[in-house]
Design a protein around this nucleic acid. Sequence first.
RNA 1: GCUCGGAUGGUGGAAUUGGUAGACACGUUGGACUUAAAAUCCAAUGACCAUUGCGGUCGUGCGGGUUCAAGUCCCGCUCCGAGUACCA
Length: 938
Amino acid sequence: MVYDFNNIEKKWQARWAKNKTFKADSYSKKPKYYILDMFPYPSGSGLHVGHPLGYIASDIYSRYKRHKGFNVLHPQGYDSFGLPAEQYAIQTGQHPAKTTQENINRYRQQLDQMGFSFDWSREVRTSEPDFYKWTQWIFLLLFDHYYCNISNMAKPVRELIEHFEKNGNESLDAVCSFDTPQFTYVEWSGFSENEQQDLLLNYRLAYLSETEVNWCADLGTVLANDEIINGVSDRGGYQVTKKKMKQWSMRIGAYAERLLKGLEKIDWPESLKEMQRNWIGKSIGAKVLFQIEGYEKKIEVFTTRPDTIFGVTFMTIAPELDLVQEITHPDQKEAVTAYIDETQKRTQRERMADIESCTGVFTGSYVLHPFTQERIPIWIGDYVLADYGTGAVMAVPCGDQRDFDFAKHFDIPIKNIFKNVSIEKKAFTDKEISVIDNSDFLSGLSYEKAIKIVIQKLELQGSGEGTINYRLRDAIFSRQRYWGEPIPIYYKDKLPQPLKLKHLPLDLPEVENYLPTAEGYPPLGNAVTWAWDTQKEKVVENKLIDNQTIFPLELNTMPGWAGSSWYFYRYMDAQNSDAFVGNKAAQYWREVDLYLGGSEHATGHLLYSRFWQKFLFDINLLPVEEYAKKLINQGMILGNSAFVYRKPGTQSYISKELIHESEKLEPIRVDVNLVNSSDELDVESVRKWQPQFENADFKLNNGVFKVGREVEKMSKSKYNVINPDEICEQYGADTLRMYEMFLGPIEQSKPWNTSGISGVHNFLKKYWRLFHEGNDIIVKDEQPSKKELKILHETIKKITYDIEHFSFNTCVSGLMICVNELTALNCHSRAILSPLTLLLSPFAPHLASEIWEKLGNQNTIDHVDFPVANESYLIEDTKNYPVSFNGKMRFTLELSIDLDNSAIQEAVLQDKRVVDYLEGKTPKKWIIVPNKIINIVY
RNA sequence: GCUCGGAUGGUGGAAUUGGUAGACACGUUGGACUUAAAAUCCAAUGACCAUUGCGGUCGUGCGGGUUCAAGUCCCGCUCCGAGUACCA
């Protein structure tokens, strides 16, 4: 009887679905374990072989944990709002909801055929109103809270208002926008309602503000930096300009320090933590105030080197600052305006690419040095970024390379404040070995001491203070897009007002046209009908109508990361219609025990979700401050792209081996599915594949056309996608699962390559044969031999250890060795085969289930206890030791035994530690290597 | 530039954390079974030398060091990958 994987897999998948085998109990006496995968975005191309890598690993671990007696929550869902569905809608006029549903169906079918043990009863979709109701609700909570620096947590805006009524904002220590004015309680009560609301926006965690964005008028939308190439839009090549727009933002900066500190408590990959640390970018330094000559205003700068304050010879401010207009001297007006126009045309990308050139202009104004009162010229330079620190820099050319270059370029004096250092050619930046000189009260001090003293002095005279600055910027939350969560806000006198919980979900309306308009009017503006009608209030045509009063609604939608920032809590209580997660469920499941996903989300999803978690923890809605105890980044499975080479300007393609090195050819990607394993191209299929190849000329070599290969990310646009479906068809899901694990360590990226798949498939066939002879299952209830027991228990030990350390590739090897050895011994003992099948079950669940049933077990294998290694079977017989043996051993040994053996005595006496021993020090363990030396482990 | 990873046979990768390097698998070669093929099984397979039998030498990117013992630890390089980039 052959291993009929297709039928076995169908049989068990149907049975699992019917019996709801993997449904997690809501509450259980068993210990809980929550294993989460990053949910997929259901794209049009379906799953490729790279997607399931992490899912296979988490599935193995989930099945293992069930065998170990845990109540395992292993859910799955879809991150179903997003750009590609909307782009597709724009092109074809199909509603994104429709295409999304189709894609989800395909994904589900593909996930099921891999035999994953997901609890589908808890499925979530971010684009479903039942789900985004709560995303909108969380947004409203963020809108309704501010960050208090004293208690170091979010607090209700209500308390903020109380504080303003009693004290104004002077004595308040809260996170707020940079340009928040100071006011007293008297002033506060004098403000109009609108003025008050406007000020409150400076404190809210979700707030509306004027933000500079990359605006593309032709596409009618804001673009992210990576959507712009060489100053024009990546899509269509249109011009991109900078524009100030009212945008919703999230005050993630308020949580910078806690996001940093929290990393110490969680078991996440060090490299990923490092990425988050760099992204948060903490730097310790000082704020220094410089009085502008002839003005009341002061310019505040942030510096990490306040010790170099006596080296300041000019100041540079970012061209975007409003301050620029105010302080520009009439004589310089023309030059400054010209420069600002110039920089505005340059996109951020151009500015970034153009590190070499040094541009700037003098404002004609001066600030006064806080200690020497010297006049310091104020320059404008676009090497200063408006949104880092205060957008102004005290330039110390002797100690900073950029300031040095700027000074050299514009011929500004450079003052040396370092002892015994030449600054002729470049700035001196090595702070650790510097000694300050030529600096009044700081002369002769080291960098560390000077910083302490200068900060004291600054604080004393009120012209600065020690401070910490973070690189992390507040996250822009508005998107001029259709396929996302509507922001639950309406406008009263142009001020944002929150909708109420009873209004939620604010459904995404139907529109005729998904394209945003050229003025930046979002596509929701095209909406004809909005969905709800609550008592007196209703929403019609972008308007909230309340008692005959009409208010416009917010038309922007939320970004992709909104729904994914909290979805893992929804799984705990997916059907709850009264809360985003019920208290009882949150208390039982608490947090994710193991999270698997790609490191590409390090500074996106994985940071934003930690931010929302901390916020929801602050306001007592969640029990823990970090939601994922342990995180593993699975590597990417890369594609092996195929290239054909075209002579420029012709339709002539040349087989790979016929290419001379000197020839310049254009590489063009072809679908890898049209290439066989020897890199030979199916020319006829290529002609049918794309019209450009229809009449092309292919120069063959020995009757075949060979392609070039390159390893790249697997993506539809690179035509290198391999779908798992065919492999499941040809080898079965169990083979695919084990093969993907066998490929290498889970964290490692690797190119997809099917050449080794037969090895794994052979193993499963061999495993099947271990139990079969002809059509009969052959299992004997006989006492297993010592040797068989030893093989089994060694394997149990290894597999258990390796699964717990997520070393799934070595698990597969371990099982292979075990089966090879048992085959050689012709083992048919039930006492061996039964536990062995349990060991296999997480990896090849269909095969294991089938054999388990054939062994006559009444229960299914899924929740049976995992075998435990019995050490007594593993102990080596050491009696015949030590002159010759196979394998390596570690054990405690009486020294006298070995020293009596003259064959090894000579070697032993070379070992310093033996001498130590003879002098009275006791070793703990010895390791003996034949013909070599004795090792002693203390 | 900065930060973090990595480098082991023809290939993917093991190595109990300092203790027989190359497990397991692919590939290759030879053999068995077969009219033949497929399937399956067996053997060899790091390199070089010796192969009449044993055997020997070198080997974990390069150069040093610590140690009885280094793929593993330390110092200095080279190359590759990832992240980030005028962050004051």
